[in-house]
Amino acid sequence: MGHLEYSEAKKVVVKGLMILGVVTIAEVFVALFGNGHIIHGFYLHKIVFYPVMIGLSLYKAYFIVYEFMHMRYEVKGLAMSVLLPTLLLVWAIIAFFQEGTSWGKRRELIHQKDKETIHETQQPSETGMLDDDRTYQIQ
């Protein structure tokens, strides 16, 4: 299993603390930087922001599993038997998120259709106000 010597192992612990700490600080920094907290009015585009965040988190997850949970020192088969099944979630994530998007779109569509019927059946009154709670004009 190739366990490390005690003194080496202690070093790995310190190294692990440093790496996880630095990555966490980096994550928070990117979050604040990307949302305009550090340079006022500057925002990172989502195409950059999301992958950076997800990448850093996946690195943290990798580090915890491989170093702290000793997966690196286990037989490869054990690592695969635990890690490969999580790939089943990839399709679940794609399908669920696609579904979520489509619920949102459908809700939006229903909203629009609801408005259409109101326009057909009700004429605006003289004050220009509808019974729809969104359309009041200031006189």
Binding site: A31, H37, L89, I93, F96, E99, G100, G104
Partner: peptide, 28 residues
């Protein structure tokens, strides 16, 4: 591993609901 799938169930549900919403609160 199975507990990870429980959390995955929650987090994927979170994602699906978030994707279905027109807006979402900004964490910071």
């Amino acid at each position: 591993l199975s507990d990870a799938f429980t959390f995955a169930g929650f987090l994927i549900s979170y994602g699906a609901l978030r994707f279905s919403m027109p807006t979402w609160p900004v964490p910071d």
